[in-house]
Simulated assay, not measured.
Amino acid sequence: MAGPNFRVGVVVERRPSSSPWATHAFRVVAIVPEAADMADGHVLGTEGDAAMLYAGSADVEFHRVETGNYRDNLATGEAMLWVTLSIEDTAAGIRLLSVTADPAEGEAMTEAGGLMVDVAPMPSEIAERLADFVRTHHVERVFRKRKRE
């Protein structure tokens, strides 16, 4: 069952790539706790060859069955969000697919071909909401090793 969800905005940096297989390199530079009212791919500014782009907005959902993963994420001292982008042949060069606070889900997305997964620090407002969610919904599950017969 899903818990609260909210929209966040994602800002990426686009630079020319030195790779012969890609024209641009991308990295997530910021997560905005409130989704901005602007078009996906909107150029926020440039500095030299680099451009800051608003990649778009996505829902971040908290799920009760994932509270253990969220707790581990928060326990690192610098909680992160995993951002999945699709590299595309568009003016912006990317499309935002998802944002998650679950490290296991973020890692699983790295196994999908053709996608880029990057991490960014979780804004404190989101970390506080996530910590409240974990405190409210976490149930410790005891691991029991099965014995072979």
Rank of each mutant, 00 (worst) to 15 (best):
residue 97 L to V: 12
residue 141 R to H: 14
residue 68 G to S: 10
residue 139 V to M: 14
residue 45 G to S: 01
residue 38 M to H: 01
residue 7 R to Y: 12
residue 19 S to D: 07
residue 95 R to I: 02
residue 98 S to W: 03
residue 126 I to N: 05
residue 42 H to L: 04
residue 137 H to I: 00
residue 126 I to G: 04
residue 102 D to A: 13
residue 122 M to T: 06
residue 8 V to L: 01
residue 68 G to W: 01
residue 49 D to R: 11
residue 18 S to H: 09
residue 34 E to T: 10
residue 97 L to M: 11
residue 74 L to W: 08
residue 74 L to C: 04
residue 36 A to C: 11
residue 143 F to W: 09
residue 69 N to F: 15
residue 146 R to I: 14
residue 39 A to P: 04
residue 116 M to H: 10
residue 60 V to Y: 03
residue 62 F to L: 09
residue 40 D to F: 07
residue 5 N to G: 15
residue 75 A to T: 01
residue 12 V to M: 10
residue 9 G to H: 03
residue 49 D to Q: 09
residue 118 D to R: 01
residue 121 P to I: 10
residue 36 A to H: 12
residue 13 E to K: 15
residue 46 T to N: 07
residue 141 R to G: 11
residue 65 V to S: 15
residue 102 D to Q: 10
residue 7 R to H: 12
residue 92 A to Q: 09
residue 104 A to G: 11
residue 143 F to Y: 09
residue 104 A to R: 13
residue 20 P to M: 03
residue 146 R to N: 08
residue 117 V to S: 00
residue 77 G to R: 06
residue 110 T to G: 00
residue 118 D to I: 00
residue 51 A to W: 09
residue 1 M to R: 00
residue 99 V to N: 04
residue 128 E to T: 12
residue 11 V to N: 09
residue 27 R to W: 05
residue 146 R to S: 09
residue 92 A to H: 07
residue 11 V to T: 09
residue 115 L to W: 06
residue 116 M to G: 12
residue 13 E to C: 13
residue 85 L to Q: 05
residue 6 F to M: 14
residue 24 H to N: 10
residue 111 E to L: 13
residue 44 L to W: 03
residue 39 A to N: 12
residue 119 V to D: 13
residue 130 L to W: 14
residue 35 A to H: 00
residue 15 R to H: 08
residue 8 V to E: 01
residue 72 D to W: 05
residue 46 T to P: 11
residue 25 A to P: 00
residue 139 V to H: 12
residue 24 H to V: 05
residue 114 G to L: 00
